[in-house]
Design a protein around this nucleic acid. Structure first.
Lengths: 241, 241
DNA sequence: TTCTAGTGACGAACGCTGTTCGTGTCAAGT
DNA sequence: ACTTGACACGAACAGCGTTCGTCACTAGAA
């Protein structure tokens, strides 16, 4: 907040022509601010009013640069994708590179809460999204896959990554809504409750669940993601000519 | 709607003790009504006020039977799962049965718009959810899978099904928000736009995308779902002892 | 039969949301 | 110097989830 808000300037000092007190409103500035809020408070905390407030203006001012809250989210999503750095393409190592891409994508989506929703809701058309699309699609094509199969493979892999990240963000949002902030402790408590619930089921109607509660609640998020990723990559390898 | 709402009863006719004019409020009634609204107008159309209005009461009345909108959604989700009918378990045909289960689950989630979100947000604990969990988990166990692997497999398969259904529901919501109601025409238009966009990209920077636009936009939702499902099932088969 | 306790129903309100309208203001182009 | 056009923004609209306090009514006790 500027220190001279509402105080008239002395008449002898001319208004400065350059360097206005607050930076000019622009789409980039709005998107950056939106991302900052999203990281701090999640999708529930991101409102047009909140962004405007952070920029020292009213909510109506944003609509000159951004059509919608939905469009703002898409722009934030593409900005986040800009964080992804990829090694040079090497089709002979397609499986490793695809795995590395999946991990990097997943890491970035998980780090920025709730952005994964935009990944699910939109066909990739932003500048960074098509850059990534060209990379991974080209990798499979150059590795010898038929175009149609490569297209399906990219689509399903993206869905898997975004789906997992979105699921995680939903749990994260629930934690935040509960006022918790210690992620570790929250997960531990959560798993303990599920564990107790499964154990309380009648064994005659649920023999397999009750017999293997430890197996059901044992693995954390990372192991699950890796298992599904291996499943998909192995399936692709079997289809590779 | 009753025909005598707001009209006082004639004084000589005693108030009936049984069969009140409107059915008594109950959790089941609220959940049923919520599901009806969800099917008609999607998650955006489902509000506590709307449910109350449909039940001829105020929104505050619902909170005696339902803690939250979130809880209402969970209850609706489990009610929807009740639609799923499953054949008797036959471990020797685990792959076919797993595929049938996946298709049925996907079909039900897709039919009821936006319910898939609840599938992603919650660990399955409702009565119908555990029934399904016991079925599919038991199927893999009896087919010879190790408990830990079976647990991971069920988890990943569920994520895939729900993720795909949720993605579809997001597009469906977008269509409804645009005022469209002809799904076929909407999809055709949508694909045409993506097609045109990909074709407009500079070929030197996006050689693979621009060279295979038809392959990228050719397959519809069902083919994509089946491809990913096959990918997962083949991967599981390869891990089966 | 009368009184009492308790429960479900619900009108009103709080504080929030995304978005639009009409007006104001300021800078660039003529 | 004047016009034009783009941007900024205060105010308002319609709607949201949820809570509070009060009301009516029923079931059980005296």
């Amino acid at each position: 907040m500027g220190s001279n808000t509402g105080v008239p300037s002395p008449p002898w000092r001319k208004a400065r022509k350059t360097a206005p007190l607050k930076p000019q409103l622009s789409q980039d500035l709005i998107v950056e601010t939106g991302l900052r809020i999203l990281d701090a408070d999640g999708l529930d905390g991101l409102s047009m009013r909140r962004v405007a407030q952070e920029l020292d203006t009213g909510p109506a001012s944003l609509y000159a640069h951004v059509a919608n809250k939905e469009e703002l989210l898409e722009l934030i999503y593409d900005m986040v994708l800009g964080e992804i750095r990829l090694p040079e393409r090497d089709p002979s190592r397609w499986k490793d590179q695809l795995r590395e891409y999946a991990r990097e994508m997943h890491r970035v989506l998980t780090r920025h809460a709730d952005v994964a929703r935009a990944a699910l809701a939109n066909v990739p058309t932003g500048p960074n999204a098509v850059r990534l699309g060209e990379y991974v699609f080209g990798l499979l094509i150059e590795a010898g896959m038929a175009p149609r199969a490569a297209s399906l493979a990219v689509d399903r892999l993206s869905l898997y990554i975004s789906g997992d990240a979105y699921e995680a963000s939903l749990h994260y949002a629930r934690m935040r809504a509960a006022g918790q902030s210690d992620t570790e402790a929250y997960i531990r408590d959560f798993v303990r409750q599920i564990d107790a619930y499964y154990r309380s089921l009648p064994p005659d109607r649920f023999p397999h669940i009750t017999a293997h509660v430890d197996a059901l609640t044992g693995e954390g998020g990372e192991a699950r993601f890796e298992y599904g990723l291996d499943l998909i990559l192995d399936g692709l390898q079997a289809r590779m000519p």
